[in-house]
Amino acid sequence: MTATLIYTIMAIDLPQWALKEVDKHRRGYLWRGRKEERGGHCLVTWGKVTRPNELGGLGISDLRNLGIALKARWLWLQKTNPNRPWNMLQIQVPEQVKAFFSIAMASEVGDGMTTLFWEDRWIHGQRIVDIAPRLHAVIAKRVVKKQTVAEALNEHLWLHDARAAHSVGELNEFLALWDVLWEFDKHYWRLCSSGQYSASSAYSHLFWGAVQYGPFDRTWKSWAPGKCKFFLWLVAHDRCWTADRLAHRGLDHPEKCILCDQEQETINHLLVACPFS
Rank of each mutant, 00 (worst) to 15 (best):
E108S: 12
G110L: 04
G110H: 06
D111Y: 04
G112S: 07
M113S: 15
F117Y: 06
F117S: 07
D120N: 14
D120P: 07
I123P: 05
Q126C: 09
Q126P: 00
I128S: 04
D130K: 04
A132V: 05
P133W: 04
R134P: 00
V138S: 03
A140W: 06
V143A: 10
V143N: 04
K145P: 00
K146I: 01
Q147G: 00
T148P: 01
E151T: 06
L153I: 09
N154D: 14
E155S: 12
H160I: 09
D161T: 02
R163L: 10
A164H: 11
A165S: 04
A165W: 00
H166Q: 14
S167L: 02
G169I: 07
E170P: 04
L171D: 02
L171E: 10
L171A: 06
N172F: 01
N172E: 14
F174C: 06
L175Q: 13
D179V: 09
L181I: 05
W182D: 13
F184M: 08
D185V: 10
H187I: 02
C192S: 15
C192F: 01
S194Q: 05
S198E: 11
S198C: 04
A199N: 05
Y203G: 00
S204T: 12
H205A: 11
F207R: 00
W208G: 02
G209P: 05
V211R: 13
Q212A: 12
Y213Q: 06
R218G: 05
R218V: 09
T219E: 06
T219D: 14
W220F: 14
W220M: 08
K221R: 15
S222V: 06
S222E: 07
W223I: 06
P225T: 03
G226Y: 02
K227V: 08
F230K: 07
F230P: 04
F230Q: 09
L232R: 11
L232Q: 08
V235L: 12
A236Y: 08
W241V: 11
W241Q: 10
T242S: 12
A243F: 07
L246N: 10
H248P: 00
H248Q: 14
H248I: 03
R249P: 03
